[in-house]
Design a binder for these strands. Sequence first.
DNA 1: TGACCTGTATGTATCGTTCTACGTATAACC
DNA 2: GGTTATACGTAGAACGATACATACAGGTCA
Lengths: 349, 349
Amino acid sequence: MDNTFAPPLKKSRAKPAPARVTIRTVAEDAGVSVSAVSKVLRNAYGVSDGLRARVMASIEKLDYRPSASARGMRGQSYTLGVLLTDIRNVFFAEIMEGINDTLAPTPYQPLLGVSQLRRRVERSLVDAIIDRQMDGLILVAPRMPLPEIEDVAKRLPTVVIGSHPAGTSRFDTVNNDDILGGEAVVDYLNGLGLRRITFFTLTEPDDDDDENTVMMHRERGYVSAMTRLGLDVNIERAAHDTVAEAARRLVASKDRPEAIFCWGDAWALRVISAATDLGVRIPQDIRVVGYDNNQYCELAQNSLTSVDQSGRELGKQAARLLIERIEGRREPYHFTVTPSLIVRNSTGG
Amino acid sequence: MDNTFAPPLKKSRAKPAPARVTIRTVAEDAGVSVSAVSKVLRNAYGVSDGLRARVMASIEKLDYRPSASARGMRGQSYTLGVLLTDIRNVFFAEIMEGINDTLAPTPYQPLLGVSQLRRRVERSLVDAIIDRQMDGLILVAPRMPLPEIEDVAKRLPTVVIGSHPAGTSRFDTVNNDDILGGEAVVDYLNGLGLRRITFFTLTEPDDDDDENTVMMHRERGYVSAMTRLGLDVNIERAAHDTVAEAARRLVASKDRPEAIFCWGDAWALRVISAATDLGVRIPQDIRVVGYDNNQYCELAQNSLTSVDQSGRELGKQAARLLIERIEGRREPYHFTVTPSLIVRNSTGG
DNA sequence: TGACCTGTATGTATCGTTCTACGTATAACC
DNA sequence: GGTTATACGTAGAACGATACATACAGGTCA
């Protein structure tokens, strides 16, 4: 404060830097202690209205913003990580909007990582999120095997969207009832008098424990309904980079199915493309159903019947559960949304 | 270390916590100073191979990961913020992939913020990015007015994709040559013998200084080519939530244009939808052109002629420029990619 | 009156790094 | 052999917040 009597001090006075506004600056300006300001910031217990007002005024006046890095060191960073596998999947956009809806009035900021469907990247993003002392994590349709997710959940509060882990566990889940959705599609198609229904889905990656994916659950719904109705189960699989040709083969084949039920809208659009290209008419010659009810379904050139699962709602709930968990809840909670079928022209609707 | 003689110490021995692995743990294990470890981490000057090896071994063995929060306090956080306006626009996915391509071999991690096209949210995300001491920022098609961007660029290294600021400035830009792209479309259509070409674009928001948006530049390209060819300029505008009806009106109108050139693919798909719905044939009755060449263009039901601008390349370059800037470059650099027209059936290609 | 709360404010140790300044060998030069 | 570089390490002060322990009024109650 007063270096009046200390001439040879290395670099004391007249520091040219504009001097960042810190919690200390605010404290001085308001004439209170640093701790008091900190308390106001976290709205912790034991602050009088007068003090709060004074501090708030200074914060406003100085345009002070707390440093998340510094906060992260001892307390919370007020940042939540959201891990998406694939930014191209427009359905995820809805989930994001839901997350934003819930988080907007809170002090938490969501930041996204995009894994591009690669395990390696996914893992390194999770690490990055932990390294940055984020307060919580939302995994959307993760590729990681269950034990790994549980491991992550041990390190920070976690909520998973779009994965149906078998046993109980240490994290929350938010899902649409994919089995029910799968069944509903089959029942609807059968109600139209159709019997030769093929399920078109993703080739499972090498690992065994993928009982949890949404594709797998939709498949189970399909199988169970087909079996119940006494119909032949028929499943066609393709990898991400071979969808187009597989769709073409499927549509062009001699014993073309009466209907194709695709695990997701993106694949259904490919089927429509193949049919259009080959002159196979929809819905007269073949019916197509998707899943997700994304924004492209309603375009007239697609007019795709699809299962709506309200991504926005999924996102909202996930964020809500995560905050609850951050605030102390320990028992896992599993939230399920009931899907609904939206009928359009691709099934003659 | 030895509390042998201090019985009433509050909570001294046998701390049950698993004790986080910090730089100190590593230093002890490797038998060197904390500073030495830090130097290895940052591969700073003055570290012998032997020391580096020893430290690396300990890091590996202990599975140590530096805390980004702590780093952020004095040095870099090795985190880059990427700000997207709209996660639904699949074109942005490509940009993201490009960014990841460049960043993968570096120690930097990109984290995304999504502004949902709202100014408010955009601003608060930029603040969040600054608060988290991120090392740099990539803005994709920002809504912020230029002065505000320049203000941000003063606080941290910034690169902007998809905005053409007028004068020189304190940040880098990466763009496709939208004027050229706009001209190319008109020239191509005119080459097919068409003269009544309408440009279908977004209603400008209330603010005046939006000379910089990509829509605006595409429009300028359109206008300049039309004028040069002596054709009548015709521009149709709509807001985001009225595209569908505007497209319908446009397609249904008595003096329907011979071709519609849309500022982006998403809008072109809407035009195709309207045409399909109204029984107006493409390309016989009307031709449609988009911009971005996103993944839906090639589907047969769309088969949309579009301008390709290689989002991936844009992303790559942006990340490269940003790192250069973080490492000290000061003069602004402006990178431009030349777009190319991909002809498909929607123009009779 | 003294013991014990309760509500409010403060002082200070601490989080895990990086950075500046400095010390000590070893090599290089004349 | 003495000076001067150069390479390699270390000590210790930041960085900006939070958490914990404590201080101090004023009130309540035996």
